[in-house]
Design a protein around this nucleic acid. Structure first.
Length: 513
RNA sequence: CGCGGGGUGGAGCAGCCAGGCAGCUCGCAAGGCUCAUAACCUUGAGGUCAGCCGUUCAAAUCGGCUCCCCGCAACCA
């Protein structure tokens, strides 16, 4: 499927690494599918793409989750990490590298980064005071505890103040730089509302230095802190560095230089601050260039509520694909909501979207066209005229220009809408042309030209749909009797002058409820 | 005045940054067609764009105030 790159452009794209204390849900799938669709889109343009995803495997919570599962910690993280990578295989996610924070190369990169910062004088030791819930092994802020009635917000038991020696990273020192950088680069944090949010936060708060160590006596699962054997590295500090350790930072400098900085880093809005504040400052302190952009997308709410393990309103992607298929899920997630905003997930919306767009508009168009090609022309379509029909012209051209621009801007929903506007015109073309009458009148040539125009239109939308629904695109190509290998250079009218089709079952059966 | 998001036909949303015919999907009503997955095509009904005030030739869009809903409030990932 891979072609020789033609654009000469390199594109590095990341998802966050997912925390392995539980199995993946629809939110994880969402972020990863977004990144996969962008990666595929860029590959079809001819860019050389490096798409990174992976798992975040350190911290006391992981150790506890392993204990609860009655497993050795390493076995447990191996298992859960596999749940993620297997899910990605299953839903058509084609990443280039899967990083695990328990990898030796990652550990070395993190330790190297800390040494660099320490040598610069950006790390110091100090005493850390905080409210701590012993049963939960969790820290809480004053406000959190106060809002919970002076109890642990989680378990509602009394908290105690603890005091311990720790290592701190001089985050505060870089605050003026970060403010200026964000001001000068308003497109760095996307979408714009998130940029505004970060700016507002920085205007209203003073950054405190970040505590980046944890004593081994309390947290026993993490990367050894290179400056002091009694500590491990705080898990967020460890985790963020995956974006560069995966490229060989601190090891394979050639590979690292080739790919860094990232072109786009996706994440959900709940981890915006880590990526918009900690991460740029860490890079700045390491003298590394900033990613070109970070993009915080919204949440899927189930009904009106946030997805939450304690509420038990988790949607398992594996269950969903059983009902609507891999491409049904990918399409729904990317089409239903404008990227960046929150979405409401409910079964009615899923069925509606899949039935009306994929089964009725697209699937039925393909099926009826192939059926007519078989019925009227025995599957062989040799037209006398390969020009684009007048009724197609305007919408076809508008689709081509809009689609590329919208996809480049990560507006999947509008990009898909522009494709479906064309399928709608093709359905109308069938009604207008009335091939069943032409058949009765034995106007063979007109039928062939009519069928050719539809097949050519279908071929081109399959190419454009491929980043989002790759299996469907491949199936369409197969049914058109064409190779399943293609890129955007093939999306020109009349590339093929005739068709010999191989009809299969409808692409998307209607979901009956 | 802690910060941010949202309130647009029955449902879910886009449009707002860069003011200029209120748009999309579903649903509903009527009609058409028969190649097709009860699909597809056409037409129609349905909105004081949360409210008030202001700027403007012109406001869903800009500014101010009010009400309601939802998140966040950083060493818990």
């Amino acid at each position: 499927m891979d072609k020789t790159p033609t654009s000469g452009i390199k594109f590095y794209i990341t998802t966050p690494i997912y925390y392995v204390n539980a199995s993946p849900h629809i939110g994880h799938a969402y972020t990863t599918i977004i990144a996969d669709a962008v990666a595929r889109f860029k590959r079809f343009k001819g860019d050389e793409v490096f798409f990174l995803t992976g798992t975040d495997e350190h911290g006391e919570k992981i150790k506890k989750a392993a204990l609860a599962a009655g497993k050795n910690t390493q076995d447990f993280v191996d298992e859960v990490s596999l749940n993620f990578s297997r899910l990605w295989e299953k839903i058509g996610v084609r990443y280039d590298y899967f990083i695990r924070t328990t990898d030796a190369s990652h550990r070395q990169a993190v330790q190297k980064a800390i040494k660099i910062l320490a040598d610069k004088g950006d790390i110091y030791k100090s005493t850390y005071h905080s409210l701590y819930c012993v049963p939960c092994e969790a820290f809480w802020t004053d406000t959190q505890v106060k809002d919970a009635g002076n109890l642990c917000p989680d378990c509602k038991r009394p908290v105690e103040t603890i005091e311990e020696e720790n290592y701190f990273f001089k985050l505060s020192q870089y605050e003026p730089w970060l403010k200026q950088y964000l001001k000068d680069n308003p497109g760095f944090v996307r979408p714009k509302i998130r940029h505004n949010e970060v700016m507002g936060f920085l205007d209203n708060n003073k950054l405190q230095d970040l505590c980046i160590s944890r004593p081994k006596t309390r947290v026993g699962w993490g990367i050894d802190f290179p400056l002091d054997n009694n500590y491990i590295v705080y898990v967020w500090f460890d985790a963020l560095l995956n974006y560069i350790s995966a490229l060989g930072f601190g090891g394979d400098e050639k590979k690292f230089k080739k790919w860094w900085p990232a072109d786009i880093q996706f994440m959900a809005k709940d981890i915006l601050r880590h990526h918009a504040i900690f991460w740029p400052i860490m890079l700045k302190a390491l003298d590394l260039p900033m990613p070109k952009a970070i993009f915080a997308h919204g949440w899927w709410k189930i009904g009106e509520e946030k997805i939450s393990k304690s509420k038990g309103n988790i949607v398992n992607p594996l269950d969903l694909i059983k009902d609507i298929g891999v491409d049904g899920m990918r399409y729904f997630l990317l089409r239903e909501v404008t990227l960046g905003l929150d979405g409401n997930y409910n079964w009615t919306a899923v069925v509606n979207r899949v039935n009306s767009d994929l089964a009725n508009d697209l699937g039925n168009l393909v099926y009826r066209t192939l059926n007519m090609a078989e019925k009227y022309e025995q599957g062989k379509v040799n037209p006398s005229h390969t020009g684009i029909p007048g009724i197609f012209k305007e919408i076809f051209e508008s689709m081509q220009t809009k689609y590329i621009a919208l996809m480049d801007d990560y507006d999947f929903s509008a990009a898909l809408e522009s494709i479906f506007a064309f399928t709608s015109v093709m359905n109308k073309y069938v009604e207008d042309t009335k091939p069943w009458n032409l058949a009765k009148e034995k106007k063979e040539e007109e039928i062939r030209n009519f069928l050719y125009a539809l097949l050519e239109g279908i071929r081109i939308i399959a190419i454009y749909l491929a980043p989002v629904i790759p299996q469907t695109a491949a199936s369409i190509m197969r049914q058109l009797g064409l190779p399943e290998t293609f890129d955007f250079r093939d999306a020109v009218w009349a590339k093929y002058k005739s068709y010999s089709i191989k009809k299969e079952a409808p692409l998307f059966p209607r979901i009956e409820t």
